[in-house]
Design a protein around this nucleic acid. Structure first.
Length: 148
DNA sequence: GCCAACGTTGGC
DNA sequence: GCCAACGTTGGC
């Protein structure tokens, strides 16, 4: 799961009440589908820092809710306001996430690219901007070995 | 700050 | 339903 640390970082999540926050603001259908259809309470995710130097994986978070309507889409003052959805039939979804672990050293994008089994990740593919994506179990284990 | 790549929008 | 224009993303 990607976030710009200037906007919301892993350290921000750690400081949040109960180290837990909404992962709101996803407004891309493919990312929405992964949240809505694939995420389950108790799943783990890598927290990736984007649009910073260097970009990379900062640590691990846990999904601590089922997917539910992203209510920020209903708020006309929110920058991600989208009047298309309703409470009964929401267009956008989010989950709650809880801080689990901060790596001592960022696993940089550059490091990730050096491991061929990771190359199929959308993250590493040219031009891809998907902000939420699945990680295969083998990929998860390999990334864990890169963490310090 | 630049710009390539991509998704979305809307006129036709 | 095509596709040009536009806005956004995100590495560099």
């Amino acid at each position: 799961m990607k976030s710009e640390p200037d906007v919301f970082s892993l350290a921000d999540l750690r400081k949040a009440p109960a180290m837990t926050a909404h992962w709101d603001g996803v407004r891309n259908y493919q990312a929405r589908n992964y949240i809505r259809d694939r995420m389950r309470h108790g799943d783990l995710a890598y927290f990736y820092h984007s649009s910073c130097r260097p970009p990379g994986i900062a640590g691990i978070i846990e999904i601590v809710s089922a997917p539910y309507a992203d209510h920020t889409a209903f708020d006309s003052k929110n920058p991600h306001f989208d009047p298309a959805g309703t409470a009964d039939n929401p267009r956008w979804y989010m989950v709650d996430v809880r801080f689990r672990q901060a790596f001592d050293t960022l696993i940089t994008l550059d490091t990730l690219r050096q491991h061929p089994p990771l190359l199929p990740l959308p993250l590493l593919q040219r031009g891809n901007r998907l902000s939420v994506m699945p990680v295969l179990p083998e990929q998860w284990k390999l990334i864990e070995t890169l963490a310090r």
